[in-house]
Write a protein that binds this DNA or RNA. Sequence first.
DNA 1: GTCTATAGGCTGATAGAC
DNA 2: GTCTATCAGCCTATAGAC
Lengths: 218, 218
Amino acid sequence: MQKAVRSRVRVRRGSEGTRQALLTTGAKLFAERGFDGARVDEIARKAGVNKAMISYHFGGKRKLYIAILTATLTDLASRLKALLETNDPPATLLRRFVSTFVEAMQQSPTVPAILVRELLSGGRHVDRHLLPHFLALFAVVREIVERGVRDGSFRSVHPTLTHFGLIGSLLFFFITAPVRERLQREGKLPMEVPPADAFARHTQELMARGLAAAPSRA
Amino acid sequence: MQKAVRSRVRVRRGSEGTRQALLTTGAKLFAERGFDGARVDEIARKAGVNKAMISYHFGGKRKLYIAILTATLTDLASRLKALLETNDPPATLLRRFVSTFVEAMQQSPTVPAILVRELLSGGRHVDRHLLPHFLALFAVVREIVERGVRDGSFRSVHPTLTHFGLIGSLLFFFITAPVRERLQREGKLPMEVPPADAFARHTQELMARGLAAAPSRA
DNA sequence: GTCTATAGGCTGATAGAC
DNA sequence: GTCTATCAGCCTATAGAC
C-alpha cells in the first residue's frame, strides 16, 4: 500500500509508482470490461497518471495488458506449483489446492476475470514466453489426480476432466461475484450466497467424496 | 439449414432470412470477441448482408446483441426448467440436468461464451424483461438439490453453492474448447482432452458420489 | 518522467437512391 | 428491403514543450 490518494487528485510519484498504478488500475479495468472494452483514457485517469505514460512505460495499451496478464499468470502458477513439491497424500493436496486457489482469488480479485477473458479469446495474448505458465495452471490438478489414481486413494477418474471441472467451478464462483453483488444490492436476488471460504469448504468436500476410491464411512 | 451459401457471395433472401443471418453470425462473433470486440462491419459481411441492415432490422449493434442474448437465455432456460416438471428422484434429475445442459451447449456452441461474457460484464444487458430467464438458470440446480436434501437422498449440501460449482464446471469446459483446439492443432497441448459426452459422464458421476447421503456400495 | 495538444484511424450509424 | 456513400465521434498513439 502506498500513501492514501484521493480519487482524481494527481500526486507526485516516481517512475515505479506510475508503472505500478497503471498495472493495478489496468488490471481492474481489463477485468471489468475486457481488453476491447477498457479505455486507456480511463485507465490513466483512475490511476492518477497522464495517459501518455502508458506508451512511455509500456509501449501502448496491448503491451500494458500483456504485462498485466504475465504478472497474473506467473503469480498464480508459482503459488500452485509449490503444492506439488511435497509428498502429502493426494487427498490432502487437493484440499490444499482448493484453499490456495481460493485465497489467491480473494487476494487478487481481478485474476479470475482476466484469466477467463483470456481463455474466451482463445489465448490470443499468450505468446511463447507465457505459454509455460499458462500450461502450468492446466497441469497441477492433473498431477494431483494422477498421483491419487496411481496410489489407489482416488478411483480411476480422468485427470484432465477432473481438472477442468474443478478449475471451472472455482473460477465461475469468483467471476460471478460482481453480478451477484449487483443483484443483491438491488434486491433482485432471491437467495443468499455464502462467502468464498464456505464455497471452498463445499468444493473440498464434494471433490473428496466424489473422487474417493472407497465409499467413505463418515 | 438453408440453401448452401458460398462465403462472401451475397444471396437474395427475404426479410426473415436477413434477420436470421444476422442473429446467427452475430452470435458467433459476439461469442468469439465479446460485445466490444465484435465489429458490425464483419458481422454484416460474414452474414452476407449489408451492414445498414443491422440498424434497419434491429436498431443498432447493441439491440442486435440484446436480441441474441434474449434468444440464448430463453432457449436454455426453457429447456432446463422442463426438467423440474417431473417427479423423478433428485439423483436422476441431476444426471438429466447435466446431459441436457451438455447437449444444449453442443447444439449451440455460442451459448456458453455469450453467457459467461455477459456474466463477466455484470449482466449489463439483462433488463427487467430478461431477468426472470436469467434467474431461472440460477434456480434449476438449486431446486433439484433442495428436493434431494429434503427427501434425504442427498447429504445436506448448500443448494446455491452446488449450483455455482456445477454450472461453472460445465460452462468452463465449453468456453475453453477454442483454446484447447488451437493449442492441440499447434501441437502445444501436452494432454488429450476427451469429448464433451465423456465430460458429461465424468461430471454426473462426480456429482452423484459427491452429493450422495449414504456411502455408495458400488 | 510528465504533460498538453493534436493527429490519424477506425467504428457505428444513417440519408437518400433504388 | 437493400445498398452506397458519407459522416461524426471516439480512441490510441505521439510529437514536442517542460
